[in-house]
Measured scan of single mutants.
Amino acid sequence: NQASVVANQLIPINVALTLVMMRSEVVTPVGIPAEDIPRLVSMQVNRAVPLGTTLMPDMVKGYA
């Protein structure tokens, strides 16, 4: 099963993503693939993302 990107903490809106904010985990439904974590660094989410939430492509500005 493919690992997805999961919030490692509350990720506020309009804050640049850092490695420490994200972890990889096998979850259902599948979200952004874990291998895209380096690409996500410095991008921003378009809504607050609670701890443990799977990041979906539509949550990250400029990802999709």
Results as ranks from 00 to 15, higher is better:
61 K>W: 08
13 I>C: 12
50 P>G: 08
6 V>D: 01
8 N>S: 12
1 N>R: 04
15 V>W: 09
53 T>L: 09
55 L>C: 03
39 R>K: 15
36 D>V: 08
31 G>K: 00
47 R>D: 07
11 I>N: 00
63 Y>T: 03
9 Q>T: 14
18 T>P: 00
32 I>D: 01
59 M>N: 05
55 L>V: 09
58 D>L: 10
12 P>T: 06
27 V>P: 01
31 G>H: 01
19 L>D: 09
47 R>I: 06
1 N>G: 15
63 Y>W: 15
17 L>T: 00
21 M>A: 05
2 Q>S: 14
29 P>W: 03
22 M>C: 03
45 V>E: 02
14 N>Y: 06
62 G>A: 11
62 G>P: 05
11 I>F: 02
15 V>Q: 15
40 L>V: 06
8 N>E: 10
60 V>D: 03
15 V>M: 14
35 E>N: 11
41 V>G: 00
63 Y>A: 04
26 V>C: 08
30 V>C: 11
51 L>M: 15
50 P>M: 07
44 Q>N: 12
10 L>M: 14
36 D>F: 13
21 M>G: 02
43 M>P: 00
13 I>Q: 14
37 I>W: 03
21 M>D: 04
23 R>P: 03
52 G>Y: 04
13 I>H: 15
10 L>R: 11
50 P>H: 06
63 Y>H: 04
32 I>T: 03
29 P>T: 05
59 M>V: 06
24 S>C: 07
40 L>T: 00
25 E>Q: 08
26 V>Q: 12
59 M>E: 02
44 Q>L: 11
39 R>I: 08
19 L>N: 08
42 S>C: 15
61 K>L: 10
50 P>D: 11
49 V>I: 12
45 V>W: 00
8 N>C: 07
48 A>I: 13
36 D>Q: 12
19 L>Q: 13
29 P>H: 05
19 L>V: 12
45 V>Q: 00
35 E>W: 07
9 Q>D: 10
36 D>L: 09
3 A>Q: 13
31 G>R: 02
34 A>L: 03
42 S>I: 03
37 I>Q: 05
10 L>E: 13
62 G>W: 07
49 V>T: 05
14 N>E: 09
36 D>W: 07
59 M>F: 10
43 M>T: 05
11 I>D: 01
60 V>P: 01
26 V>D: 15
21 M>Y: 05
50 P>C: 07
54 T>G: 02
60 V>C: 03
52 G>Q: 03
38 P>A: 11
21 M>Q: 04
54 T>F: 03
10 L>D: 15
53 T>I: 08
36 D>C: 07
42 S>Q: 12
51 L>A: 09
32 I>W: 03
54 T>M: 03
14 N>K: 05
62 G>H: 09
16 A>Y: 10
28 T>A: 09
18 T>G: 05
54 T>P: 06
16 A>R: 10
25 E>M: 08
54 T>R: 03
22 M>S: 00
15 V>H: 11
23 R>E: 04
12 P>H: 08
34 A>C: 09
18 T>Y: 03
41 V>Y: 04
44 Q>W: 12
2 Q>V: 10
62 G>V: 04
30 V>G: 10
19 L>F: 12
60 V>Q: 01
29 P>I: 06
52 G>N: 15
49 V>Q: 00
34 A>Y: 07
12 P>G: 09
22 M>I: 13
59 M>P: 02
27 V>Q: 04
39 R>F: 13
25 E>K: 06
34 A>D: 08
25 E>T: 06
40 L>P: 00
61 K>V: 10
21 M>T: 03
1 N>I: 15
49 V>N: 02
27 V>T: 13
25 E>H: 07
4 S>K: 01
13 I>D: 12
30 V>P: 13
60 V>Y: 01
61 K>C: 15
25 E>W: 06
22 M>D: 01
24 S>E: 10
17 L>A: 00
14 N>G: 12
42 S>R: 09
5 V>T: 09
45 V>F: 02
41 V>R: 06
31 G>D: 01
32 I>Q: 00
15 V>L: 06
3 A>W: 07
31 G>W: 02
26 V>H: 10
43 M>A: 15
14 N>V: 03
7 A>E: 02
18 T>A: 10
26 V>S: 13
48 A>Y: 08
41 V>L: 14
58 D>R: 06
15 V>F: 11
10 L>I: 13
12 P>L: 05
44 Q>F: 11
14 N>T: 07
53 T>V: 15
45 V>L: 14
7 A>Y: 02
52 G>F: 04
9 Q>R: 11
21 M>R: 00
55 L>Q: 00
26 V>G: 04
14 N>W: 09
47 R>N: 11
33 P>M: 07
43 M>D: 04
60 V>W: 02
14 N>I: 03
4 S>N: 00
14 N>C: 09
29 P>S: 04
34 A>T: 07
34 A>E: 10
53 T>H: 15
59 M>T: 05
51 L>V: 11
33 P>D: 07
16 A>D: 12
57 P>K: 08
16 A>K: 11
54 T>V: 08
50 P>R: 07
52 G>E: 04
60 V>K: 02
17 L>W: 00
11 I>W: 02
13 I>N: 11
10 L>F: 14
26 V>W: 10
46 N>K: 10
36 D>T: 08
60 V>F: 05
30 V>L: 14
25 E>G: 10
8 N>I: 05
44 Q>V: 15
51 L>S: 13
49 V>F: 03
53 T>F: 08
25 E>Y: 04
56 M>V: 07
59 M>A: 07
46 N>Q: 13
30 V>D: 12
13 I>V: 09
40 L>W: 02
28 T>C: 13
48 A>S: 15
26 V>T: 12
6 V>A: 01
52 G>M: 04
6 V>W: 01
10 L>G: 10
50 P>Q: 09
27 V>Y: 03
37 I>K: 07
18 T>L: 06
63 Y>K: 04
44 Q>K: 11
49 V>C: 06
10 L>Y: 12
33 P>Q: 05
7 A>C: 04
38 P>V: 11
45 V>S: 07
44 Q>T: 15
3 A>E: 14
1 N>E: 15
58 D>C: 13
64 A>C: 15
14 N>D: 15
47 R>F: 08
64 A>G: 14
30 V>A: 11
27 V>C: 05
8 N>F: 03
57 P>Y: 08
29 P>C: 05
17 L>Q: 00
5 V>A: 11
60 V>G: 00
27 V>R: 08
62 G>D: 15
18 T>R: 08
44 Q>E: 15
53 T>M: 15
31 G>C: 03
62 G>L: 07
16 A>C: 13
54 T>K: 03
57 P>T: 06
34 A>N: 05
39 R>H: 08
59 M>K: 00
10 L>P: 12
35 E>C: 12
41 V>S: 02
13 I>G: 09
16 A>I: 11
46 N>W: 08
28 T>E: 15
50 P>V: 06
54 T>Y: 03
5 V>E: 00
20 V>N: 15
17 L>M: 12
21 M>K: 00
54 T>S: 04
3 A>L: 12
64 A>R: 12
16 A>P: 12
17 L>E: 01
22 M>P: 00
5 V>M: 01
10 L>Q: 13
23 R>W: 03
11 I>E: 00
12 P>K: 09
6 V>F: 02
20 V>T: 13
12 P>N: 14
55 L>H: 02
41 V>W: 03
62 G>Q: 12
45 V>I: 11
62 G>M: 08
10 L>K: 12
1 N>P: 15
50 P>Y: 07
20 V>M: 14
20 V>G: 14
53 T>A: 12
49 V>W: 03
25 E>L: 05
28 T>W: 06
58 D>W: 10
9 Q>L: 13
57 P>L: 04
6 V>N: 02
33 P>L: 06
62 G>K: 08
47 R>Q: 14
4 S>E: 01
25 E>C: 06
44 Q>D: 04
43 M>V: 04
19 L>C: 13
24 S>R: 07
14 N>P: 00
63 Y>F: 11
49 V>Y: 02
48 A>L: 11
25 E>D: 14
51 L>N: 14
49 V>R: 02
34 A>F: 05
12 P>M: 06
32 I>V: 08
17 L>F: 02
15 V>P: 00
43 M>N: 05
39 R>C: 15
9 Q>M: 10
64 A>P: 11
63 Y>G: 04
47 R>Y: 10
47 R>T: 15
37 I>C: 04
48 A>V: 10
43 M>E: 04
9 Q>A: 12
29 P>R: 04
18 T>W: 03
15 V>T: 15
40 L>D: 02
61 K>F: 08
40 L>C: 04
45 V>N: 01
5 V>L: 03
7 A>I: 03
27 V>L: 05
20 V>I: 14
47 R>C: 08
2 Q>Y: 14
8 N>Y: 03
35 E>K: 06
56 M>E: 07
9 Q>W: 06
14 N>Q: 08
9 Q>C: 06
6 V>Y: 01
58 D>T: 08
36 D>E: 11
16 A>G: 14
8 N>H: 09
32 I>F: 02
58 D>K: 09
56 M>W: 04
33 P>I: 11
16 A>H: 12
33 P>R: 07
